[in-house]
Amino acid sequence: MVRINIEPTWHFTNDRSPHSMRVLLSFLSEIQASGTLATAAVNAGMSYRHAWNLVDKWSSFFGEPLVERHRGKGTQLTALGGKLVWAEQHLKARLDPQLHNIAQELEMELASLLPRVPPSIRIHASHGFAIAKLREFLLLEPDLGVDLRYMTNQASLDSLMAKECELAAIHLPHDALRRRAATAFKAWLDPDVFRVIGFVTRDMGLMVKRGNPLAITGFDALRDPRITFVNRDHGSGTRTLLEHLLTQEKIDGRVITGYQNVELTHAAVAAHVARGMADAGFGVEAAAVQFDLDFIHIVTEDYFFVCREPVLRSNVTKRLIDIISGPEYRRAVGTLPGYSVSDAGVVKTVKSFLRSHS
């Protein structure tokens, strides 16, 4: 099956011509991760000389160095180099779900015109690290197509009810908020028609700067007008969860500085905090670790699939269940901070699922 990948590309223009930064940004990220130019060159598959020529070329373009060497401490990015890497990470964090959905739509359009297209399954899912990892596994299956679209919890359920997808991947919290969320969930799903497939759990909490300089320990700290916050977009499941948690703590979001500022993904929230544009944000631990932030656990969520009972008998669904319940995928999830696998692939009725996780 034809695969499409859409990525944002930067072009800087001077008095002569535009210059693409794709190779440079990837290489600067390698330097930031490894701490040495030599290691970054090896990881990027280029010679040491070519690596320095690349850095020198762009330093000349900007009229400002992008990296600096310190004896005994390797190579580090300058403020400008770090800003470029952060901007690239932030851009991808913001746009990846939308670009993915556009690419997926184009893939399906092309597939409709090609012979011998493998059977596919439509998954509408709340965006997350575990579902993105699952897609990597599904794409390795030669005789299995996947049409994965990222959308909010509510939109995924709407799609499932309208039969616009076979699987909806959504999330519900544990503990005190479970009953409220479960009530709304049950109102949508006829227990005789739908089934739940276990997937993963994920930890949600506050993401704060490394070292937690403002000593933030929970939502109560957000009452302080000097502490700035970055929120998720309206309609997202994470935004809804946050609002329920704040209500539980008797905190009016309107008193939180920056509450009206939103980002579209967990990673974009983390990038916002990492660059000092906010003191705290709410999201998954994996995003905090990705951007070298501290994480304050607040609640754990179940992230699971819902489908109509007959869908369980399709070969594509059976293969998906085999993958998520298999050791390779479990190991992959184990590398995602704050994620864990307990009953992945286990099929339950709606009633038994909600009862066992109340």
Rank of each mutant, 00 (worst) to 15 (best):
R202S: 12
D143G: 12
P8N: 08
E328I: 05
K83F: 12
I227E: 00
R16I: 15
D56H: 13
R355D: 10
V85I: 09
D15T: 12
I251A: 08
H357V: 11
P142M: 08
N153M: 00
V193H: 10
Y339R: 01
W10C: 01
F282M: 08
D224E: 10
Q76N: 14
R331T: 15
L293A: 00
V67R: 01
R16F: 12
E328F: 10
R69D: 11
H11V: 07
G338P: 09
I324V: 14
V55L: 09
R232T: 02
V269D: 01
L28F: 06
A332N: 02
F229D: 07
F129K: 14
R355W: 05
V269G: 05
A87D: 12
M204G: 00
L354H: 05
G334A: 10
P327M: 03
V208P: 10
H357W: 11
I31D: 06
L91V: 14
L99A: 05
L37T: 15
N231K: 04
L77F: 05
V255Q: 15
T152Y: 02
D175E: 14
A267H: 14
G258P: 14
Q154K: 13
K209R: 15
A278E: 11
D56G: 03
P119Q: 11
D279L: 09
L54A: 08
L139Y: 12
E64R: 13
N315Y: 06
S34M: 06
D147W: 04
S356F: 03
A132G: 14
S59G: 13
I256K: 04
L312N: 02
L172I: 15
V306F: 13
A287P: 05
G82S: 15
T75Q: 07
A187M: 13
